[in-house]
């Protein structure tokens, strides 16, 4: 196990080193107009995160993202458990969910903006609609795929309906649900940032768009680096948990 962990760390380190080399090479190729080299970007990023003007943007994005994720997960889970355990409802609503999933959600953004106005609520709504459907779809499948014998065993032990959900359905479905959460996490982050890039006055997405407008390559690079680092770090933690959950099956 510790040999495996060591291998994992070594692989990650090699991947990061490879990416840095590719970045530097790309910089030599396209030049100063579009990119900054890694070292300059790290230096600028350090300055950025230590400046006071940066923190309101970060906290705005994080708040919007956290609320959007909470909505996506709770609505997605509730929908998933409902449709996963009720056949008629799932026959009616699941095709709709799949259809909604394939709509490019950016086309809905003007309507959301008109409905919620500029600012936090629109961003949250936009982030949440990205995340709800994948969480719901994964949960539906997870609940539906719980082996009937486990439910029968629960009944033989005299479990009530709520105990059945808590002690059998949820833990049995958890590995699949978690995979849905992982996908929902990434998509909600994308949705929130997209929402901030248009019609917002604060947030990392807004900062990125302003930087593009001013052709501030340093700032673009720094914000992009921060977002990538955050997303990659959380994703790899989630993936590790995901694998751990799936190993027991």
């Amino acid at each position: 196990m510790s040999a495996n962990a060591l291998k994992g760390v070594r692989n990650a380190a090699m991947l990061i080193a490879g990416l840095l080399v590719a970045w530097q090479a790309l910089y030599w190729f396209v030049g100063d107009a579009a990119l900054r080299p890694p070292l300059a970007t790290f230096r600028y990023t350090l300055n950025l995160v230590t400046s006071e003007a940066f923190w309101p943007h970060l906290s705005e994005t994080m708040r919007a993202f956290a609320v959007a994720l909470a909505i996506a997960v709770s609505v997605g889970l509730a929908t998933g458990f409902w449709l996963g355990s009720h056949k008629l409802s799932s026959q009616v609503f699941e095709p709709m969910l799949v259809a909604v999933y394939s709509i490019p959600k950016i086309t809905l953004y003007p309507i959301l903006l008109l409905a919620f106005g500029l600012g936090m609520p629109a961003k949250i709504a936009f982030g949440a609609i990205h995340g709800i459907v994948p969480v719901a779809l994964f949960t539906i499948n997870a609940v539906r795929n719980v082996r009937p014998i486990l439910i029968k065993t629960g009944r033989v032990h005299g479990l009530s309906a709520t105990e059945m959900v808590r002690a059998v359905l949820f833990p049995a479905a958890l590995p699949e649900i978690f995979t849905g959460f992982r996908v929902g996490f990434s998509l909600t982050l994308i949705g929130t940032l997209l929402g901030e890039m248009f019609a917002a006055q604060r947030g990392l997405g807004y900062l990125l768009m302003t930087a593009i407008g001013l052709h501030n390559v340093d700032l673009i690079m720094a914000v992009t680096l921060l977002l990538i680092t955050f997303a990659a770090a959380v994703s790899s933690v989630l993936l590790a948990i995901d694998r751990r959950l799936h190993r027991r099956i």
């Binding site: 082996r147 014998i149 486990l150 029968k152 065993t153 033989v156 005299g158 059998v168 833990p171 049995a172 958890l174 027991r248 099956i249």
Partner: peptide, 15 residues
């Protein structure tokens, strides 16, 4: 109460 059942299928809770 007082009745126990063992099925043919593997009914262990994997978690």
């Amino acid at each position: 109460d007082g009745i126990g059942v063992v099925f043919q299928e593997d009914a262990c809770f994997p978690w």
